[in-house]
Amino acid sequence: MTVIWTMKPEDVARIRFAFSPLWELVASLRTLQGPARQSIHLPWIKCVRPRLAGLDLAELFALVPPTGYFADFVTPPPDTPLPDFAAELDQVRRASPERALVEARNLAGSDPAVLARFISDPVAGVARVADALEAYWETCFAEFWPRVYGLLERDVLRRSRQLAQGGAHELFAGLDPAVKWTGEHLYVDRPWCLVSELHGDGLVLVPSAFYWPSVAVMSPPYQSMLVYPVQGVGTLWEQGPPPAPAALSALLGRSRAQILLALAEPSTTTALAGRMSLTPGAVSQHLGVLSDGGLAVGMRVGKQVVYRRTPIGDALASNSA
């Protein structure tokens, strides 16, 4: 079965990327319920499982079962490229109770008693779900978000270059085998059929680590959104920054050598700081030295400055490997 979207030229022109901490949080509920499906996240599961005893996740698990459809109102499509969790959670709190009721009734295989409680009073149910998401975020996810964000950011930067250099054809060709683009229609292999137009409002592309390796779609009444598996998810739970060879460390210093190696993929100061376990200020100072030495260069992408290695930096990093 297939989802088929007809994309007009204005839709193609309005393709945009976004990050969603809320999507990752909700997707991680499935990871908890089926660890074998995503064994790659076992380090995270082992870390947070002892913390679950103090949380009541029954209603969240009912709305987000291990497989199949889950209630869309808990993952509203991001309306900005870099939404923070508080802003996304506010969208959940403002979700239409009527819409949430329809979605809850479409769920199959969930706990009937828990769902019945939600269906009997969706206004109170939406409020409880938002509170549960907030507690789950603070207890099990917030401290890990910078690491997840860094992985998603590197993926988006890489694919943004693909879109700029090769257009939609090159972007969709490398997105996922389940996604195919004909120049007019976007086909997404899903367990159900849907044929619709995007109506000129574009398409939001959201990379995901915790929904990996699957794709997901959202359609009207929501903004059309395609969630795709992020590349490099196997590196997500690696401990610490990449090791710096001794010779490169002796030349640049250990931290600068690690940062130069990490810039194999363009990154922001904040993302590097999270990966290096350094303060943003310290990373900024090291980047300044690398830039002054001609080994790295910053480029503005939207409101952020993204750093990458120069050809000289590439040569130094590769020769030291």
Rank of each mutant, 00 (worst) to 15 (best):
R154Y: 00
V156Y: 04
S196I: 00
W192G: 03
F210S: 00
R158H: 14
W181V: 06
D201T: 13
A178I: 08
V148K: 03
V195Q: 09
G202A: 05
S208F: 04
P207G: 11
T182R: 03
E153I: 01
L198G: 12
L194N: 11
G167V: 11
K180L: 12
G167S: 08
V204K: 07
L198C: 14
L163Y: 03
T182Y: 01
L203S: 10
G167A: 10
R190M: 15
V156K: 04
V156G: 01
D176R: 00
W192H: 13
V179D: 06
V148M: 06
F172L: 11
G200F: 04
H185E: 15
L203K: 08
S160A: 13
L157D: 03
L171S: 07
G150V: 05
Q162S: 14
V156M: 11
V204H: 03
W192C: 00
L205V: 14
F210N: 01
E197D: 12
A168N: 05
F210Q: 01
W192A: 12
L198W: 04
Y187C: 02
L186N: 11
K180V: 13
G202N: 09
L203C: 05
G167C: 10
G202K: 03
A209G: 05
L198M: 14
F172A: 08
D155P: 09
F172S: 07
A173Y: 05
R190D: 01
V179W: 08
D201Q: 08
C193Y: 14
V179L: 01
W181T: 02
A168L: 08
A178F: 06
A173M: 04
Q165A: 09
P177A: 07
L175S: 04
V156I: 14
Y211A: 14
A164H: 10
L171H: 07
Y211N: 08
L157H: 08
S196C: 07
G183M: 04
R158W: 11
L157M: 09
A168H: 08
Y211S: 13
V188C: 06
L157E: 06
V204Y: 02
E170V: 09
Y211C: 02
L194V: 14
L175D: 04
L205Q: 10
L163K: 09
P191A: 08
R161E: 14
S160V: 01
R159I: 13
G202D: 02
G174A: 09
G174M: 11
C193H: 15
A168I: 06
L194Y: 11
A209Y: 04
H185K: 15
E170R: 15
V156D: 03
D189T: 13
G183L: 10
G174K: 08
P207E: 12
L171V: 06
R190H: 08
L186R: 10
V156F: 01
Q165C: 02
E184Q: 12
D189S: 06
S160N: 13
P177N: 05
F210I: 02
V204G: 03
K180R: 15
V179N: 03
G150A: 15
R158E: 15
V156R: 11
H185G: 00
L152S: 06
W192Y: 15
D155F: 07
L151A: 12
Q162W: 15
L171K: 05
S160F: 00
L203Q: 07
E184Y: 01
